[in-house]
Amino acid sequence: MNLNTAENTLFDYSPITERPPITWPGGARVAAYVGLNVEHFLLDRPSTSIWTGTANLVPDALNHGWRDYGPRVGIWRTIESLDRHGIRASVLLNSDVARHHPQIIRAGRERDWAWLAHGRTNSIPHADMTRDEERRLLTDVVDTIEATTGQRPRGWMGPGLTETFHTPELLAELGLHYLLDWTNDDQPYPLKVPGMISVPYSVELNDLLLFGKGTTGPEFVQIVKDQYEQLHADSKNSGRVMALALHPFVIGQPFRHKYLDQALDHLATRPDIWLTTSDEIADHYRRSVAPDA
């Protein structure tokens, strides 16, 4: 593959107005999924922080404790809401979770979650590797997830949405079919690597980014409603995808829980929605729109 970074060698420009129409199952106009980030963070590495003042300390009790609330408490509250509304999560899984939080893996297997590879740990970006180093890492991540969840991942999102120029082709070698890293569209689209597509994900409709900017619970609910309503309007002639990105250490905080429940209730009761997983969205697109992808 040509790695000249002056040219985009990963995908072509494609205006959304000039594509074959997408029809979702059951005549739905919007395909929606919940992207649940289930992550592991290292104690001795700077990572996602709520306050940067202590982010470079080891140990960083303030920020690590904030993140660690997710697997200890927040995810169980989030699972309660997903269960109430009959929603299967699309889990963006760090493979280290399997070793450190096996109870979460067990809970997801009981609920038939879709499992996507999300790197080994969210404390280390997926970057600065040779091709062979990356192949070994990706093989370990994918094989670990398959061995512990009982499902071989079909999709990928890098830690912090990071990739190398080789990532799509190496994932294709491992049997994966889609990426979430490129948050540049409301529909899936083919990548230049044969067999690989991009499926929409969102850094805007994302609890970590929204609440980090001071969004309130009621505002979050309205944002979810507004996102769905506009995508529904846009989908008059061709289906759209809505991704709701969640992190248990953010949305799982007690004072936010009822607002997640309200947002999920709104989505679960829409008549023109296909509330599904990113796996199913990718599979349907590849079968019906891009069979050669």
Score class of each variant (00 low, 15 high):
239 G>Y: 05
152 R>W: 03
157 M>I: 15
14 S>G: 12
241 V>I: 02
120 R>T: 15
172 A>P: 09
111 R>P: 00
144 T>N: 07
266 H>G: 11
2 N>D: 15
18 E>C: 13
86 G>M: 10
171 L>N: 03
152 R>M: 02
110 E>Y: 08
85 H>Q: 09
14 S>D: 09
8 N>L: 08
274 W>L: 10
210 L>P: 08
117 A>F: 04
261 D>S: 10
185 D>A: 15
73 V>T: 06
269 T>S: 11
176 L>R: 03
89 A>N: 07
165 F>W: 10
130 T>G: 04
128 D>I: 10
196 M>I: 01
196 M>Q: 13
227 Q>E: 15
120 R>I: 15
218 P>A: 00
70 G>L: 00
180 L>Y: 13
7 E>R: 12
76 W>D: 03
32 A>F: 05
52 T>R: 12
205 L>M: 01
237 N>W: 10
52 T>P: 09
45 R>T: 13
193 V>A: 11
184 N>C: 12
153 P>N: 01
270 R>L: 12
257 H>M: 13
66 W>C: 00
237 N>Q: 14
240 R>Q: 09
118 H>S: 07
194 P>L: 03
197 I>Y: 10
95 S>N: 13
2 N>R: 14
190 P>I: 04
49 S>H: 11
116 L>N: 11
286 R>T: 05
203 V>K: 05
3 L>R: 15
122 N>I: 06
223 I>V: 08
83 D>I: 09
219 E>H: 07
133 E>C: 04
281 I>F: 08
77 R>N: 09
189 Y>H: 11
148 T>K: 12
89 A>G: 07
97 V>S: 09
67 R>I: 00
253 Q>W: 01
268 A>S: 10
245 A>E: 10
85 H>N: 13
154 R>E: 14
159 P>N: 07
143 D>E: 15
82 L>A: 02
201 Y>E: 06
72 R>D: 00
236 K>D: 12
194 P>F: 02
107 A>I: 05
175 G>R: 07
150 G>A: 03
83 D>S: 11
50 I>L: 07
160 G>K: 10
137 L>V: 12
21 P>N: 03
55 A>D: 12
88 R>Y: 05
280 E>H: 14
201 Y>H: 06
119 G>C: 14
250 V>N: 01
206 N>G: 07
88 R>K: 14
175 G>N: 06
30 V>D: 01
